[in-house]
Lab assay of single mutants.
Amino acid sequence: TEIRININGVTIHVRDASEELKKLIEHLLRLGADEKEIREVLHRWEK
């Protein structure tokens, strides 16, 4: 699944996002995570 996240005008594009990762990101956004925090989570997730 491919997702695009727009945070304050900055688009983060994620290829091959699992449903689990998608739910995690949606949850973090609801909690008010910023772009830097989302990128950090994505970076750690890929490892």
Rank of each mutant, 00 (worst) to 15 (best):
R30G: 04
L24F: 13
N8G: 11
L31M: 15
I12C: 03
K47H: 15
K23T: 13
R44C: 11
R44L: 14
T1E: 10
I5C: 04
V41W: 15
E20T: 11
I25H: 00
A17W: 08
E26W: 15
L31C: 04
T1H: 14
I3C: 04
I12Y: 02
L28D: 00
E26P: 00
G9C: 03
R4K: 11
L21G: 00
L24A: 11
T11R: 06
E20V: 09
S18L: 04
H43G: 05
L31A: 09
L42T: 01
K22D: 02
K47N: 15
E2N: 12
T1P: 07
E35W: 14
L28N: 01
V10E: 07
L21R: 01
I7V: 12
A33R: 12
I7P: 02
R30H: 05
K36G: 07
L28E: 01
E20P: 06
A17L: 07
W45T: 02
L31P: 00
S18W: 03
H43W: 14
R30T: 06
R30D: 04
T11S: 12
E19M: 11
K22H: 10
I12E: 01
K22A: 11
I38V: 06
G9W: 01
K23F: 14
E26A: 15
H27N: 12
D16L: 06
H43D: 06
E46S: 15
A33W: 06
E37N: 06
L42V: 11
D16A: 11
A17C: 05
E46M: 15
T1M: 12
S18F: 03
S18Y: 03
S18A: 08
K36H: 10
I25Y: 01
I7L: 10
L42C: 01
N6C: 09
L21P: 00
W45L: 05
A17M: 07
H27I: 10
K23L: 14
E35Y: 14
G9V: 02
N8R: 07
L31N: 06
L29A: 04
K47D: 14
S18M: 04
L42P: 00
E37L: 13
N6H: 14
K22M: 14
L31G: 06
E20M: 05
I12W: 01
I5D: 01
R4C: 07
K47W: 13
R44T: 08
N8E: 05
H27D: 06
I5H: 02
E2R: 05
L42Y: 01
R44Q: 08
D34C: 04
R15G: 06
E40C: 14
L24C: 02
E40Q: 13
D34G: 11
A17E: 04
T11K: 07
H13I: 10
R44W: 11
I12D: 01
K47Y: 13
H13G: 04
L28G: 00
R39K: 07
E26T: 15
E40K: 13
W45H: 05
A33C: 07
E26L: 15
I3P: 02
E46F: 15
E40W: 14
G32S: 04
L31Y: 08
R39I: 07
R39T: 05
D16H: 14
E40N: 10
E35F: 12
I7Q: 04
N8M: 06
H43V: 09
T1Q: 12
L21E: 01
W45G: 02
R4Y: 13
E35L: 11
L24Y: 12
I12S: 02
D16G: 14
K22N: 06
E26F: 15
A33S: 05
L31E: 04
E35S: 08
E35P: 07
W45Q: 02
E2L: 07
E19G: 07
E19A: 11
N8W: 02
I5R: 01
H27L: 14
T1K: 08
V14C: 05
R30I: 06
R44H: 09
E46N: 15
A17S: 05
I7S: 04
L21F: 07
K22T: 13
L42E: 00
L28F: 08
E19K: 08
